[in-house]
Write a protein that binds this DNA or RNA. Sequence first.
DNA 1: GAGTGGTCTAGACCACTTT
DNA 2: AAGTGGTCTAGACCACTCG
Lengths: 284, 284
Amino acid sequence: MPAPPPPDDDARRHPRSRSRARTGAGGDRSGRSTAGRGPEPPRHEAIAAALRRAITEGRYPVGATLPSEAELAAAHGASRGTVRQAVAALLAEGLVGSRQGARRVVLSTTPSQSFTELRSFAQWARAGGRTAGGLVLSSSRGTARAEEAGLLQVPPGAPVLHVLRLRTLDGDPVLLERTVYAEWIAPAVEALPDDCESVTERLRRDEGLVFAHGEHHIDAVAAGTADADHLRVRRGSPLLRVRRTTTTAEGRPVETSDDRYRPGSVVFTVRNSTQTNPLTRTHA
Amino acid sequence: MPAPPPPDDDARRHPRSRSRARTGAGGDRSGRSTAGRGPEPPRHEAIAAALRRAITEGRYPVGATLPSEAELAAAHGASRGTVRQAVAALLAEGLVGSRQGARRVVLSTTPSQSFTELRSFAQWARAGGRTAGGLVLSSSRGTARAEEAGLLQVPPGAPVLHVLRLRTLDGDPVLLERTVYAEWIAPAVEALPDDCESVTERLRRDEGLVFAHGEHHIDAVAAGTADADHLRVRRGSPLLRVRRTTTTAEGRPVETSDDRYRPGSVVFTVRNSTQTNPLTRTHA
DNA sequence: GAGTGGTCTAGACCACTTT
DNA sequence: AAGTGGTCTAGACCACTCG
């Protein structure tokens, strides 16, 4: 049985500045001060971005194998741990698959959207080369019904803001939003113009409010009278419903919404695997 | 400028066997042979499971803060890296949120299902305390249509197996599956009994076939004649449609399916955040 | 200013796949 | 047997949050 190791001197054990010729080198972000530039993104993000680009641009088609971790580490001048952190992102996005002992394989070449893109209807539309429109049909202070209160984590009957909003894509109505905002954000929402194109972007700019987490419940419902009217479909025809609740990074709920999409206009896609599975199927 | 460090002797630098009194200790899984037991799960998984349990059992309600990484590391006798790996899993599941500098916050207490649970209707039903039934309505060899061929990554017109299957929950029809299997797995599928409860489990047991990745496209459609007939709804009434393609760990497509759920019976849920976003919204 | 999470390194052993 | 990903450690510096 070997004796426990002596606490050998730690000085000069992890020599930061070596001849790497990088600015914001890993672990040693103090080298940042060399140039007066803004903060650089983390190394692992840069590596992930490079890989993502290579995949979406077709350098690694579906079925191709990625370079080994050792190769990537050498190519980017990073440690294996950092490379693994980068690859983990692609793994979570479902772009690549991984099995112990074998090289990683490209599963898909279509990247998933950023969370912001998902949340912001306008931003999403823009990314697809379309123009989004928005129109507030009604906006009223009220009290939270039991279900809404639960989702917003406020007591039942607490004051909230109800907003009914119609969203259009290239002029066509595609989405009817019934949103409930928590009281603390209500004034900021009411201050927005009725035809505000992107609520998300305005709240971020004006209030510094960042949406960080979301939960989406997806099912199908028949169009009610109001739905049919605004979305220009027949009453009773199928609509894709997404009930979502968004919270800040601290977990504070901001809004909860019942969104109804006209069929044929939008599809939701989830990629998952044995490693990461964000999708859940529940009883209604 | 400090000189590069001498490549100081690595002997006895990372002394594996210390007085930790653990069997499958981290990094040193050779200690496994002490007992003839089966393989233990990785440390980080065990830690993640413990945290998940604590959350779902209510020890950490929504809004509560988790112990710090240092505390968790000490409590589980693991390194910080391993703890971070564990917490990353909860992060990806959307159970907890994280901001630099602040303690992690519980966002939700309902765990997401395993990938297998999601894929297997029977397994999912069982987990919810219900009984699943299955019935093959038709099964026929045929050729892949252009769209199917693309999804299965085979040339158009390649031989495939089409199966129409009705799934019931406690006797009620809730799901109509139109599945296309790649040819190489077709014989195994045809060998299954018509009322096979869980195709997934049988294929895993009999063929050693593991589904590893999946892509789900979710939208709403009106019930067609066949849909209405089998699901016992009116023609034209809303159905939740999930088109999915599943592949093996190597990325080889196994099956693609058009699943239609009777409304009110099932809801799909996705949790996401700025860090990990598996959900995508696309134009139809 | 102490605490906490985010990032990074360097090295090690293992299980598994591939040649 | 060589290669590759999976797991783990121990230590370090940083940016950020909070009292």
